[in-house]
């Protein structure tokens, strides 16, 4: 069903990754990271490729991918906004951040904007309690947020997208 394949560099990285784990299965998480980078998101074709590559059942890979919130799933927007909702952030107003984003973008949690730019999720601890409330956008942390900061972030990302390049 798929003619996806890792690039040469990605394959090299994968092979190196294997040497760092006691068995193949244990290397699944970092391999999924590579796949996410290579294929933009982990759609069924990408998961199937990883399963075949690692000799695991596709169902096992699906189970792992869906267990975590931090993998890019099929249909994720250009910018994945993951708002931490665990204790420190919750106490410091993460609910407001979520509600604000939801109103501003016109999407609910787990939804993607019509233009395909933003996906909004609420996630568990991102290990940045000292800078609560915070969110992660793709690979970047945005910390100590006020609602104005959130507005600025969205504006900036919109412009960036218009200029033709996601971070």
């Amino acid at each position: 069903m798929t003619d996806l394949a890792f690039s040469k560099d990605a394959m090299k990285e994968y092979e190196w990754m294997l040497t760092r784990y006691p068995n193949k299965e244990a290397a699944l998480l970092p391999t999924l990271r590579i796949a996410e980078r290579e294929f933009e998101n982990l759609d069924p074709a990408a998961m199937k490729y990883v399963a075949d590559l690692m000799g695991l059942s596709p169902a096992k890979v699906l189970g792992v991918v869906t267990f975590y919130t931090h993998y890019r799933r099929e249909g994720t927007g250009t910018y994945h906004l993951q708002v931490c909702s665990t204790l420190s952030c919750a106490l410091r107003g993460s609910e407001d951040v979520c509600a604000h984003l939801s109103a501003k973008l016109g999407v609910g949690l787990g939804e993607t904007t019509d233009d395909g730019l933003f996906t909004l999720s609420k996630v568990e601890c991102l290990a940045s309690c000292d800078t609560a409330p915070m969110l992660q956008c793709n690979d970047d942390y945005h910390e100590g947020l006020t609602l104005e900061d959130v507005d600025h972030l969205i504006d900036r990302l919109r412009e960036e997208a218009k200029a033709g390049g996601a971070a």
């Binding site: 059942s57 169902a59 189970g63 267990f67």
Partner: peptide, 10 residues
């Protein structure tokens, strides 16, 4: 040994 099933989400 067919491995078709898994738990999705958490």
């Amino acid at each position: 040994g067919t491995g078709e099933l898994c738990v999705v989400a958490r």
